[in-house]
Amino acid sequence: MKPDTPSPLLSVRGLTKHFPVLTPGFRRRQTGVIKAVDDVSFDLAPGESLGLVGESGCGKTTTARCLLRAIEPTAGVTLFRLPDGRTVDLARLSDRELKPVRQHAQMVFQDPFSSLNPRMTVRDIVGEPLVIHRLAQGADLDDRVSAMLARVGLRPEHRSRYPHAFSGGQRQRIGIARALIMRPSLIVCDEATSALDVSVQAQVLDLLKELQRDFGLTYLFVAHNLDVVRNFCDRVAVMRKGRIVELAATRDIFTAPQHPYTRILLSAVPSPDPDVKMNFNVGEELAKLDALTG
C-alpha cells in the first residue's frame, strides 16, 4: 500500500455465509448447504461508491446483511473504522457492542414493502432510528424528520400517512430518508433506486451524491441496473454464485470487461433504442460458461 492511501473504511476478508438446505414440513432435515457467500474479500475506501452487481441469487443481499450483521456470517472478518478512529470487527462484536456502532452503518433495502412497518406512520418510521439511539426528541425530532422528508422529495402532509398509502417509489424514498437521518458513514443501498421512475431516480442519485460530498459518505451500491451503476459508482464488483469474479474501476468494467460472465451480463442490458436489439439468448451463453468452468 502506498503511504498516502487512506486506510479503508471497511475491509472485508473471507466473508462466508452458508445456509442449510432443509426438507419441508415441521421437522425439517438438513440435506445440504447453500454457499450464499463464499470467501468474499474487498476494501471500501472512505468516500467511494462501490457497485455490487451480478446474477439474482448470487449473494449480494446476503453479503450486505452479513456486513451489517443483520444476519450472522459463517466466517470472515469485517473491519470497520469508526468516526473516532477505532477499528472494530463487525463480525465479532456482541449485540451490546454492536448497538452504538449500528448508527454509523445503515442499509436501504431492496424491498420497500416488507421493510417498512405497516403500523407506523411515516413520521415514526423515519424518526425511529433517532429515537432508538436517543439522538433527538420533541420539536427537534419533528424538524429533522420534516427536513429529511423534504430532501428525499416527500411532502410534509405525507408524515401522518401509513406505508400502504404510498406507491412503490414513494415507499423507497421513505426507506432512504430513514437511513440518511442517522448521518451514517457507510450506507449499503440494496436496489435503492430500482422502484423509482427515471426522473425521480436521477433526483435520488443526485441526492445520494450530494450527501456523499457533504458528509463524506461511503456507499456499497447493490443494483441490477447497470446503466445506473455505471453512472454512480467509482468501482464495480461483479459477483456470481457467492464469489466476486471481477472487481475493477467502473470504466474498465464497462469498456474492457475481463471475465466472460461480466461480458454476458453487459450484453443483456436492454437498449432504450428500439432499433438496437437486445440479446435474449443469454441463458445458453451462461450454460456454456458453466460447462467450461464446471
Binding site: 448470487c58 430500482s194 422502484a195 441490477h224 451480463l265 443483456a268 435474449f280
Partner: peptide, 16 residues
C-alpha cells in the same frame, strides 16, 4: 415491474 428485482441476464430470459 416484473423484472425490476432481477439481474439483466435473468431479465433477458424472463422477457424472452
Amino acid at each position: 415491474e416484473p423484472t425490476t428485482a432481477l439481474d439483466v441476464t435473468i431479465q433477458a430470459q424472463i422477457l424472452g
